[in-house]
Computed example of a mutant assay.
Amino acid sequence: MNALPAATESPPRTLVAQPLTPDAFAPFGDVIEAGDAVRQFPINGGNTTRYHDLAKIDPGPDGHAIVSIFRGEPRALPFPIEMMERHPLGSQAFVPMSGREYLVVVAPAGDPPSPEDLRVFIARGDQGVNYARGVWHHPLLALDTVCDFVVIDRAGNGHNCDEVMLAETVLIDLDR
């Protein structure tokens, strides 16, 4: 009797994080950074530069913007991505307070994402992100140490968090 070959499982897909830039992130929302902000001007007698209107905060109909602090535990790499979430009623912004790099995993708004839809960015400690309404994203991914983030998002009536499990696990790694 001939034995059948053992079924082999293919290794999980691995995505390497790319640098977070406004152009690369534009399909998913806004990068919040001083950098080359289009609208910047001096205020307070010239002692301060205001980098103006950096993100389109969208609390959606019947919502209002709230400010919270999220404290993220560090994630070990490579990190498995098994689920994604979205906020269909409003945007959600994350601004790091700890000055540390962190990961941003996104997929376009619309149908639940497949592993092929995922994009991974490494954000510098001086860059925030604002996920546009409905954009799929992974929850907070701090690296190396506990990190605090100011989070600006929506409060109000209605269900504003959808979660989906991915059809297959995707590994995230860095090319440091």
Rank of each mutant, 00 (worst) to 15 (best):
E85Y: 08
P12G: 12
L15M: 03
G46R: 11
V164S: 03
M165G: 06
M83Y: 10
D144I: 01
A132Y: 04
E82Y: 03
L89A: 10
R154E: 08
T14G: 00
D173W: 07
A17I: 08
R13T: 11
L54Q: 08
F149W: 00
H137A: 14
G46K: 10
L166T: 13
R133Q: 09
N2C: 04
V164C: 10
D126Y: 14
R13I: 05
G110T: 15
T169P: 06
Y102D: 01
P80K: 13
A37V: 04
N160S: 12
M83G: 07
L166C: 11
W136L: 05
N160R: 09
P108K: 15
S68T: 12
R176V: 11
P108Q: 15
D144Y: 09
L54F: 09
D144K: 12
P96F: 14
N160I: 11
I43W: 03
M83L: 12
D153G: 02
T21R: 10
P42A: 12
L4N: 10
G46S: 10
E116D: 15
D173H: 06
G99L: 13
D30L: 07
R100K: 15
R154W: 09
G63W: 04
P27R: 02
F25N: 01
R154I: 12
V120P: 02
V150T: 15
A26W: 11
R119T: 04
T21E: 11
L103N: 07
L4F: 09
G128F: 11
Y131V: 00
A7G: 02
V151G: 04
Q127K: 13
V16G: 00
R86A: 01
Q18M: 13
W136I: 04
I57H: 01
V31Q: 05
V150A: 11
R13Q: 15
D30A: 14
P78T: 05
G29T: 04
S10E: 14
D126M: 07
H137G: 03
D148Q: 14
D117M: 05
P5H: 02
I69M: 06
